[in-house]
């Protein structure tokens, strides 16, 4: 009757095999993975920063982090994102595999321009935090007319 445990063992083994095979097929995968990258498990989430002229836009990868567990601080051109990812392990279940880290993280950035701190907007969607950081008037690009 208890064939399920061995089924699961097989499943986990198959997953490892799959990953190894993928690593072999595409060596750049293993290489990419070897580079220490930002990650919640490493103490800081991955981010993208775009400069859209009059504002900066930052996207942060925060899967499984609730809105209330995140805090964003801005001062001048300094930005700090901190938060915690809490365990979402269900009650009464046995864990067979736990890869998703439970972690408190802080990451700070020096932005390329001073930010109008009063107008910063933050939005969460599908585990991505999007920050819209309007530049201070003095930091905005200006069109120069040639006389």
């Amino acid at each position: 009757m208890w064939t399920r445990l061995s089924d699961l063992d097989r499943m986990i083994h198959a997953m490892d095999l799959f990953q190894n095979r993928m690593n072999r097929l595409h060596p750049e995968y293993a290489r990419l993975r070897a580079v220490p990258a930002w990650d919640i498990a490493q103490g800081g989430p991955k981010t993208n920063l775009c400069d859209a002229g009059d504002h900066l836009e930052m996207r942060v990868e925060v899967p499984g982090v609730a809105k209330d567990d995140l805090s964003v601080k801005v001062q001048g051109n300094y930005l700090e994102i901190s938060g915690s990812r809490k365990s979402d392990a269900p009650e009464g279940y046995t864990a067979h595999r736990v890869e998703r880290a439970v972690k408190t993280f802080t990451r700070s950035f020096t932005l390329p321009a001073d930010v109008d701190t009063g107008k910063v907007e933050a939005q969460m969607a599908n585990g991505l935090l999007t920050l819209t950081l309007p530049k201070l008037e003095a930091a905005k690009p200006k069109q120069i007319t040639i006389s």
Binding site: I12, V62, P63, G92, Y93, T94, H96, V98, R100, L128
Partner: peptide, 16 residues
């Protein structure tokens, strides 16, 4: 993450 109890197997998958 893979969890199991008597009734089901439960997967939590990060897909940000």
């Amino acid at each position: 993450d893979i969890y199991e109890n008597d009734d089901e197997i439960l997967l939590h998958v990060d897909m940000p």
